[in-house]
Write a protein that binds this DNA or RNA. Sequence first.
DNA 1: CGATAGTTTGACACAGCTCAATAGGCGTGG
DNA 2: CCACGCCTATTGAGCTGTGTCAAACTATCG
Lengths: 240, 240
Amino acid sequence: MREDIHSTGIPVLCASCEARHKGVCGALGPEDLVALAKVSYKHKARSGSELVGDAEEVESYSNILSGVVKLSKTLSDGRQQIVGLQFAPDFLGRPFKVESEINAEAATDVSLCSFPKAALERIMNQSQGLEHRLLQQTLKELDEAREWMVTLGRKTAAEKVASFLLLIARNIDPAVGPDKAAIQFELPLTRTDIADFLGLTIETVSRQLTKLRTDGIITIEHNRLVTVENMDRLVARSGA
Amino acid sequence: MREDIHSTGIPVLCASCEARHKGVCGALGPEDLVALAKVSYKHKARSGSELVGDAEEVESYSNILSGVVKLSKTLSDGRQQIVGLQFAPDFLGRPFKVESEINAEAATDVSLCSFPKAALERIMNQSQGLEHRLLQQTLKELDEAREWMVTLGRKTAAEKVASFLLLIARNIDPAVGPDKAAIQFELPLTRTDIADFLGLTIETVSRQLTKLRTDGIITIEHNRLVTVENMDRLVARSGA
DNA sequence: CGATAGTTTGACACAGCTCAATAGGCGTGG
DNA sequence: CCACGCCTATTGAGCTGTGTCAAACTATCG
């Protein structure tokens, strides 16, 4: 399956892959794509499984094909902070470091396309496009991290929860605008995860969600399925 | 002065420049260095002056030669968060974006070596080394941002202030260890800036500094000159 | 020496945390 | 099919760390 090359030169493995367009693989020419596809493999990980352990040697990189991955850091006494969420078709991995000080865990069931660290680094040396793409993704992550620092440092609990819902909503549908109809999505995180992402306790998260519910801004079914009834008012509460 | 080339091929402008070794210029060969030096100029900015305005078109990049630059973001109602500090010989600027959503301001008096955006981007297309160096710097900033997210989201006020002092101390002397003698440094930020960096109020920052003082862990002279008397205890209070 | 800006200190309020009890969803097994 | 246990989320009551507001202090500089 993996060596079977399509007439256009696109490996079968990659034919319908989102990462080939919007992900890092978009930077690769046909030969590089073939070379990388030869050593790549798609696989799935269940929600909760650890993808990259803290202080663990990183041997491979991945593209996220579906699902959500949470990146977190933990203090010695157990306090935890989620420092980033990654969605398809993001690249997962920290180039040029032997050890990651970050824990990557599947927040939902995820499917990945993984390849050895060395393979990617070899291609990176050959073709400048890949490094450029990685720089772009890293800059995007840096922008997001800094944006979130404002949320962590300066927003109230109510604003934090609204900001989180907006972040998810915009990832489901990037074109989300105030004039659109009610939009609906499944929360990719548990209350505990949301709390760890927002620097709050689960009780505070729960209370703020309840407040948004009783104020008619959102509805929640089965604890996870959120419908935003009024995007304007949600944005207004996000402190933006 | 700027076109006068030294026999080794190193422009005079760059001869004693720290950025040529540890900064992005270290990635440049002699020709590129000459080309960039031709359009570069060193200049100084007073503490408090704005280097890159929020939502302002960015026309040039810089290397920081001395001093400290603070990167901040502001909410519409004026709440502010410092999302990063940059020290010599860091690169200052956000590649590939027409607009920066970040405000860069001189926290202390700074000296810079600036060059047009286009010049750097031209060189980047030619030599891969530069883009590699920029990726490295961006990854470092991302690591720092995520580390700080833990501080913002999960640490107490006391731990935040201790973490801040450690951050500065380690930037003054990267080899700072517990066994070293008392180390001393000038705080590059006002209490207001420290508060905006830590997501606290100035009063809380002040009270925590007082506590560290009365507990004999630090001494402060002239509001800015800090001596860490006991590095161990400072580290212990940082929550690491 | 007065003016100004930055910092510290105090008294009090409140947002968010802690601890505890309750409720809901879901799978297992009788 | 119900009973039970488990896990997650919600709700409540009270506490506390940090914010707010106000006043006093200090350094710097004309």
